[in-house]
Design a protein around this nucleic acid. Structure first.
Lengths: 157, 157
DNA sequence: GGACCGTTCATGGGATAACATGGAGACTAC
DNA sequence: GTAGTCTCCATGTTATCCCATGAACGGTCC
C-alpha cells in the first residue's frame, strides 16, 4: 500500500510546472505506476491526488448503480469529468492544469500534503489555516477513530 | 480497461470535423481498436461514445432483458437504429454526423467528457450546467465522493 | 570535530516533438 | 456536374524532452 507522508513545499515555475516531492515519487515507483489522477476537491480549495489504483477503488462504487440510472450518470460525471491524469516528466515534474491552479488558488508555491493512500495540493498559506482549524476541531471534540466495540456511549448508538 | 478522463474542448470546423482529444485517442490505441460508436443520449442533449468493446457489453446487457418486453424493444431501437460507427482519420479527427450535431446542439466548440469506459460529447456550456447539477444531486443524496466519507471530519486514514 | 566530496533534488531555460486546426485538391456517388 | 468525403499538407501553439545550475544533505576521512 502506498503511503504518502509529510508536507513538502515546491515552486510552481512560470511554465506551470512543479516538482513532485522526491519521497512521493518514490512511493509511485514502489506502486509500479507513476500515473496520478488529480481531482479538484469539492469541499475545499485544494486538489486531491490519487494513484491509479486508489482512483480505481474510488470508481468501483460506480458499479453498484444500474447502467443509465441517473445516479450512475451523476456519479460518473462528478468523478470523471474534472479528473486530470498526470504523469511526471523525466525530471519528476508535472504540468499543473490551469483549471486546477485556479481551483486551489495556487501562486508561486504549492504544498504537497501526504494523506496516506492519496495526497493533497494546497496553497501553503491556505493549508496552514486548514490544518490549525482541523487540529482545533479534533482537540475540542476529542475525536477517536471509528472502531471496534461500543467503548463509549457517544452520540450514535 | 479503457479509462476516459477529463474534459477537453475542441473546435468543430465548418466541414463538420473535430479532433478527438489525444488522450482519448491514446486510450483507443491501448484498446487495440480505434472504432467508436456514437449514439445520441436518450436522456440528455449529448452524444454517448463507446469503444467497440464497451458497446458490445451494452448489447449483452440488452440480451438479458425479457425477449419481447416493450422495454427491450425500445432500448434496442434507441441503441441500434441511431448508432453511428466512427473511425478517426489520419489526423485523429472525426466527421460529426448532422443528426448528432443537431441532437447535442453543437456549435463551433464541442466538449469531450470522459466517463470511464465511455465518453460524452456536449456543447461546452450545456456540459457545464449538467456537471454542476450532477454534483449538486450527488451531494444532496450524500453519496460518497472523492475525499472522505460523509459523517466524519478529517479522518486520518 | 571539522573540512571535503559526492549524490540527490529542485529549478531554470532552450530545443524538439506533439497536437489542434485550417485549407487545398482528388476521389466518389448520385 | 455537383455535393459530400477523404487524403494530404501547412501552420501556430503548447507540452515534453534534454541539459545546465545551484542548493541541501549525508558520509567519509583526516
Amino acid at each position: 500500500m502506498t503511503r504518502f507522508l509529510g508536507t513538502h513545499v515546491n515552486r510552481l515555475d512560470r511554465k506551470g510546472r512543479v516538482s513532485v516531492p522526491a519521497p512521493f515519487r518514490a512511493e509511485l515507483t514502489r506502486a509500479e505506476s507513476d500515473e496520478l489522477i488529480f481531482v479538484p476537491s469539492h469541499r475545499e480549495a485544494c486538489i486531491e491526488a490519487y494513484t491509479s489504483r486508489a482512483f480505481d477503488d474510488l470508481v468501483e462504487k460506480l458499479e453498484n448503480f444500474d447502467e443509465f440510472s441517473e445516479e450512475r450518470e451523476d456519479f460518473a460525471a462528478t468523478l470523471y469529468a474534472d479528473a486530470h491524469p498526470m504523469r511526471p516528466d523525466s525530471e519528476g515534474r508535472i504540468m499543473m492544469p490551469e483549471a486546477l491552479i485556479a481551483h486551489a488558488g495556487l501562486q508561486e508555491s504549492v504544498a504537497f500534503i501526504g494523506m496516506g493512500k492519496k495526497f493533497q495540493i494546497w496553497d501553503p498559506e491556505a493549508a496552514r489555516q486548514r490544518n490549525s482549524q482541523a487540529r482545533a476541531r479534533v482537540g475540542e471534540k476529542g475525536l477517536t477513530l471509528p472502531g471496534r466495540g461500543p467503548a463509549r456511549p457517544e452520540g450514535g448508538a
